[in-house]
Structure formats: C-alpha cells, structure tokens
C-alpha cells in the first residue's frame, strides 16, 4: 500500500505529533506568504455560504422558530393561525416521562456505540501494524466492505442474520427462536453491533494511517526498553495520536448520537411500546406520525444543543493543546 498523496514526505511523518507542532514554531511558513486576497476568499466561499445559508442555517432557524410555536396539522393546513407559545413546548417535553427515558437511552446508546467503535477500531488498527501484507489486505478489504454497505442494507442484512426463524446466528449460538428485537436491551445490543460494524472501519483506517506516520525508531526504542504492547500504546502511541483520536472521537459522537436508519429499520420505528426510541427517531415520530411538528422541532433543538456542547468541549480541548484551526 503505497502513499499517493501530494503531501511532501517531511510533512507527512511529523504531523501526527500535533502537540509538538505548535504553530509558534513555524510562524514564517504559516503566516508569511499567505496572500491577503481582499475579496477573493469571499468569492471562493460564496457558493458554500449560499448553499449552507439556504439549506442549513435557514432550516435550523426555522426549526428553532417552530419549536416556540403551536404548530400541528391544523396550522400547516392553514385552518388555524399559528400561535406563539414561548417555552411551553419545552416544558411539555420535559414534563413527559417518555422524553426523559428517550434522552437517557440516546445518551447511553450513543456512548456505548462510541466506546465500542473506538475500542474495536483502535485495537484493529494496532493489529494491522503487526501483520504481514496478506492478512492486512484481507482485514482492510473486509472493513471497506462493511464501511461501504449502505446503512439501510446493513440494517436489513443484520436483521436477517439475527432472524429468530431463518437467521444463522441463533442457530450458531443455539438460541432457538429467541427474538432479539423483543427485549429492550437485546434490541439495543443488536443495533449496537450493526452500528459498530459499519462505523469501526473509519476509526480503524484513520488510526492505522496515523500509526504508520509514527517514526519507527520511537516504537523500536520503546520495544527495546521492554515495554509491553499495552504500555507502548498507552505511553507512546496514544499521546502521539491524540489529535487523530480527538477527531475520530468527535466524529463518532456526532454520527452515533444521530443514529436514525438503524433504529428505524431494525426495531420497526422504535421497538415494542417505543422501548428503543432514540431522540432522532422520537422527533421524527412526534413530527410526522403524530403531526406535532412543534414538539418534534423542540426535540431537534435539544439534540442540536447537546451536540453543540460536545463540539465546544472539543474546541476547548484543541485550544488548550495549542492547535490552530
């Protein structure tokens, strides 16, 4: 596997050590020749800003607005006037037991998915560096396959694998006609397995690329000192990979917190008596099945705020490490 990027080799081996490459050490390279383009950068940015403004910022604004209104089917059809309700939608939401449960389930489920994905991804990335070309290629290709699988096909295929009547998994584990989607936790576990399956490749490949950029001498020195595998990972690799780990963690949090298709398809829209609802699906059901658009929007806003908090935490972390954006 040869590298074919445009990056000059000198830059490629160093950057994983983000903490060391503080911007202050190379001020002339970073700041000096970069042209002050006047209006040019804005010209380049114009299409992106236009698209984002119209299709992201404006809808987010509308989402916020709807969450303060009384907005149900009657209003949408124009039968009744929209009414400003202030925070009433939010108080309704937080007074609802089910919302609390769904919120808790979402956070717990996302956390489990992130941990599972990171653990599997990192472990396999390290494993990749320990094996010769053939097993490595096999694992890489399998991972790419899992990554490439569209979410919806992944969900249906996993359902089929765990089908109580026709699936091979129950047969293999001798579980008879145990129904995975019936119990709350077994259903979550099934979805979790699918989520980890389709999202660990991103972590694995990214971390693997990062480890390869770590100078061999460092690792050799550590190994000669008699450090164990786990110690090498903890004391040498992990600190060097911290920027990469930061990014894959944040991406995983973003993706896993927003899981929709898997839950929707695998648990049939939220499971028995709504036991497997997560915020995203809950918002969708509230809005589109029950036509309570304002409640659905309020749930969306809560999700947005939670993710925003994660992002801000991440940015703070970056800043403390002296990273430049």
């Amino acid at each position: 596997m040869r590298r074919t990027t445009v990056a000059p080799p000198a830059k490629r081996s160093a950057p994983a050590t983000g903490a060391r490459r503080a911007p202050a050490t190379t001020p002339s390279r970073r700041r000096g020749p970069r042209p002050r383009g006047g209006w040019t950068p804005w010209l380049y940015l114009a299409p992106a800003l236009a698209v984002l403004g119209a299709l992201l910022v404006y809808p987010v604004y509308q989402l916020g607005l709807i969450s303060f209104l009384e907005y149900t089917q009657a209003q949408v059809s124009g039968g009744e006037p929209t009414r400003f309700r202030g925070l009433a939608n939010y108080t309704d939401l937080f007074a609802d037991d089910q919302f609390g449960q769904v919120l808790l389930a979402t956070v717990g489920f996302a956390a489990a998915c992130v941990l599972g994905t990171l653990a599997v991804g990192c472990a396999l990335a390290v494993l990749l560096t320990r094996v010769r070309a053939l097993p490595r290629l096999a694992l890489l290709l399998a991972a790419l396959g899992a990554w490439a699988t569209p979410t919806i096909t992944g969900s249906t295929v996993w359902l089929f694998l765990f089908d109580p009547d026709f699936g091979p998994v129950n047969r293999l584990l001798g579980l008879g006609d145990f129904s995975w989607t019936y119990g709350r936790y077994s259903a979550f576990l099934l979805v979790l397995l699918e989520v980890v399956w389709c999202s660990f490749p991103f972590v694995m490949i990214t971390v693997y690329a990062g480890i390869r950029a770590v100078p061999g001498e460092v690792l050799e020195a550590a190994a000669l000192d008699g450090a164990s595998q786990w110690r090498i990972w903890r004391s040498v690799l992990a600190p060097m990979l911290r920027p990469i780990l930061g990014i894959v963690t944040v991406q995983s949090v973003i993706w896993d917190f927003k899981v929709f298709t898997q839950i929707y398809v695998m648990t049939g829209g939220g499971g028995i008596a709504g036991q497997n609802l997560v915020l995203n699906v809950y918002a969708y059901q509230k809005a589109f099945a029950s036509s309570q658009y304002s409640l659905g929007s309020a749930i969306g806003v809560v999700m947005l705020l939670l993710l925003l908090a994660v992002t801000l935490g991440y940015l703070r972390l970056l800043r403390r490490q002296g990273e430049e954006l």
Binding site: L55, L63, A287, G296, G300
Partner: peptide, 19 residues
C-alpha cells in the same frame, strides 16, 4: 463548518419539508 456537522439532519426534515 465544524458546528454545521453537528446539526442533526433528521431533525431538519421538518423545516426542509416546508422549504
């Protein structure tokens, strides 16, 4: 650009529908 990645796309289905 970073924050924009946080936006739960699914939640925007509602306003996007009207848009």
């Amino acid at each position: 650009f970073l924050v924009a990645q946080m936006v739960p796309v699914e939640a925007l289905t509602i306003p996007l529908f009207f848009l």
